[in-house]
């Protein structure tokens, strides 16, 4: 606890940091249980985007400021990278490079990795709910959101080797052919995560996409980008190959149009986009004939497991390939 409060002090207003330094200068001020307890300087986390399995700043060097706690006014703010269109391009590049490897893994292995993601999220419950609270969510609601997020990861871990048999079919044809259909991944999917719920919405949008063997570039919630980065830290330790999920923070309206026009992006999954931007993005996407899924779920809607853990969510991000094979004679 002492450590936590010290960190909070460090994050506080500039004068608080100044006091911390002064205290550190006196060194080993207090004696407790025989051990010297030097005053510590607060450690502030540098929030970075997650691209290609690494945590990076924006190539542009720009940041946006997020209030330390929602509703707190004044100087007490934190810097979160503001992605540029080049960050978007770089992310698409690594996502495209990661696609073949990810889609080529066995369904069982993808399931194991997503299950481990569930484990990693579970181990970070406190950190995640703390981050949501700093973003303005009440304590109880934050914990419920983290629980639902862990459950969602486990649910999709289960789906990785099961959706194929639901979407595949053996098609009756009038001729000497064996005709069957099977699902395949699309490629790089660009996701715009909903503003709220910042964690469950993010995970709930990413999971069906990667379950199907796609890779993704995600534009995180602008209301609470810190939680998206903390979520990325769970991704980074869950054996997920680098580049399968790439999370950018910053302005959606700035980066999204370039990604929508990017020929290497196969589909867009847009959550809660304002109508004008959605329309222009759909027009941009038409140039390279992308699939565009746009929807706006209510906040409670994301907590509806029966709806959001449905294989229909996976079906949006698969291509159905039909094969005619000569048979009989």
């Amino acid at each position: 606890m002492a450590r936590g409060s010290k960190q909070d002090a460090g994050r506080g207003a500039p004068q608080a940091a100044g006091e911390g330094e002064a205290a550190a200068g006196e060194a080993s001020a207090s004696q407790e249980g025989g051990f010297a307890q030097p005053a510590r300087v607060g450690i502030r986390k540098a929030y970075k985007m997650f691209v290609g399995g690494a945590f990076v700043r924006s190539e542009s060097g720009r940041y946006t400021q997020v209030p330390e706690h929602a509703g707190v006014a004044g100087e007490n703010r934190e810097n979160v990278p503001r992605a540029s269109r080049k960050d978007g391009r770089d992310a698409v590049k690594v996502a495209h490079e990661a696609w073949a490897g990810w889609a080529g893994r066995t369904a069982q292995n993808r399931g194991q990795i997503l299950y481990r993601l569930g484990e990693m999220l579970d181990a970070r419950r406190g950190e995640l709910s703390g981050s949501l609270e700093r973003g303005g969510v009440a304590a109880g609601a934050a914990q419920a959101e983290v629980d639902a997020t862990v459950d969602r990861a486990i649910a999709y871990a289960g789906w990785t080797d099961k959706y194929q048999s639901l979407f595949a079919s053996l098609n009756p044809v009038a001729g000497p052919h064996f005709n069957f259909t099977s699902p395949e991944s699309l490629g790089v999917v660009v996701i715009v995560a909903p503003e709220r719920p910042a964690l469950l919405g993010l995970a709930g949008a990413i999971l069906p996409v990667i379950t199907a063997g796609n890779t993704c570039v995600v534009l995180a919630s602008t209301a609470d980008p810190r939680t998206a980065i903390t979520f990325a830290e769970a991704l980074a330790t869950s054996d997920l190959p680098g580049g399968v999920v790439n999370i950018l923070t910053g302005s959606v309206a700035e980066v999204l149009p370039h990604l929508a026009r990017h020929v290497e992006v196969a589909a867009l999954d847009l959550h809660g986009l304002e109508p004008a931007l959605r329309k222009s993005v759909e027009e941009d996407a038409s140039g390279s004939v992308k699939r565009v899924h746009a929807r706006k779920l209510s906040e409670e809607g994301w907590f509806d497991a029966a709806a959001t853990e449905s294989p229909r969510w996976i079906e949006r991000f698969v291509e159905l390939k039909t094969i005619w094979h000569p048979a009989g004679q």
Binding site: R261, H262, S288
Partner: peptide, 9 residues
Amino acid sequence: TGAYQGGDY
């Protein structure tokens, strides 16, 4: 064209 290109093309 103003759009980032893809290697498949």
